[in-house]
Structures are given as structure tokens and as C-alpha cells.
Amino acid sequence: PVYLSVKADNSMFIGNDPVTDETMITALNALTEGKKDTTIFFRADKTVDYETLMKVMDTLHQAGYLKIGLVG
């Protein structure tokens, strides 16, 4: 499974590897070998604001990742 996490300080990680807004999709493409039907499990600290969550989800959708599971 692929886990994308947003921490309380808005830092992002794919698994244990830090990513930025600019590198997130490139890292996901490498990890999933470009398979856009891969489910991305998205988790965020409860203090992360809604705007940040939606920005990340919008970026995922624009890149073609449509299977996003929200996890606690």
C-alpha cells in the first residue's frame, strides 16, 4: 500500500520519505510505476486545515490518482 501523510506542521511524507508539493507526484509515479489506479491511503494530522487537505487531494486528482482512501 502507498501512504501519503500530512503532519501537523504541513510536512508531507510518502511512506517515511519526505516530499514537497513539487515532488509529490514524481515520487508517487516512481513508487507506483505510473499505475494511476493504485489506491493512495491519505492520512493527515487532525490539526491540518481543510484547505491544505483539499489542495493535496486536488493535486492527486489532477495527476490521475482517483483512488484515494482516507485513513485516521
Rank of each mutant, 00 (worst) to 15 (best):
G15M: 08
S11F: 07
D45E: 09
V56A: 04
A63N: 11
I25N: 02
S5E: 12
T23P: 01
K7V: 06
N10E: 06
A63T: 02
M24V: 08
L4G: 01
R43F: 15
F41T: 04
M57H: 04
F13T: 07
K35V: 07
V71P: 08
N10L: 14
M24N: 00
I14C: 03
G64Q: 02
L60E: 00
T38R: 08
E22T: 10
V19A: 02
I40F: 01
K55G: 05
S11N: 08
N10Q: 10
L60G: 00
L28Q: 00
M24C: 03
I68Q: 03
A44V: 14
K35E: 06
G72T: 12
V2K: 02
K36R: 11
T32Y: 04
T23C: 07
T32Q: 02
E33F: 10
N10H: 12
V2F: 04
G34Y: 05
G69D: 15
T47I: 06
D49P: 15
N10R: 12
F41V: 12
D9S: 07
P1R: 07
V71M: 11
A27R: 14
D17T: 14
V19T: 05
T23S: 10
L66F: 15
E33A: 12
N10D: 06
L70Y: 11
I40S: 00
D21P: 15
Y3T: 06
T32W: 02
L60W: 01
M12N: 01
T20G: 04
I25M: 07
M54T: 10
N16Q: 09
H61V: 11
D21C: 14
F13V: 05
L28S: 00
T47K: 10
M57K: 05
G69W: 15
D58M: 12
Y50F: 12
T32H: 03
T52N: 06
L53I: 15
F41K: 04
F42L: 15
F41Y: 13
T39R: 11
D58G: 10
P18F: 09
A8V: 06
T38P: 03
D58V: 11
V48K: 02
T20F: 05
G72M: 13
T32E: 01
A30Q: 12
K35I: 07
A8N: 06
L31G: 02
L4F: 08
L31A: 12
L70E: 06
A8H: 09
A27C: 09
M12R: 03
P18E: 12
M24Q: 00
I68N: 02
L31T: 05
L66G: 06
V6E: 00
F42R: 00
L60I: 06
Y65A: 01
V56F: 05
I68T: 05
M54A: 10
A27Y: 13
G64F: 01
S5N: 10
D17L: 14
T20K: 04
I14W: 04
I68K: 02
H61N: 10
P1D: 06
K55C: 05
L31S: 05
T23Y: 06
L28D: 00
T26C: 08
T39S: 06
A27S: 09
L70N: 06
F42S: 00
K36T: 10
D58I: 11
K55W: 12
E33L: 11
L28T: 01
L66S: 10
P1G: 09
F42C: 08
A63S: 06
V6N: 01
R43C: 15
H61T: 11
T26R: 09
D45L: 03
H61P: 00
N10I: 04
L66T: 14
E22H: 08
R43D: 12
T20N: 10
M57N: 02
D21H: 15
N16K: 09
Y65F: 09
I14K: 01
D21K: 13
L66E: 09
D9L: 04
K67P: 05
I68C: 05
E33W: 06
G69H: 15
K7Y: 15
F41G: 02
V6G: 01
Y50E: 10
V56Q: 02
L4I: 15
I14R: 00
L60F: 03
D49E: 12
D9F: 07
E22S: 10
I40M: 02
V2S: 01
T38W: 05
N10V: 03
A44M: 10
L28R: 00
T38G: 04
L53G: 01
V6T: 02
E33H: 14
K67V: 13
L31M: 08
M24Y: 06
T23M: 07
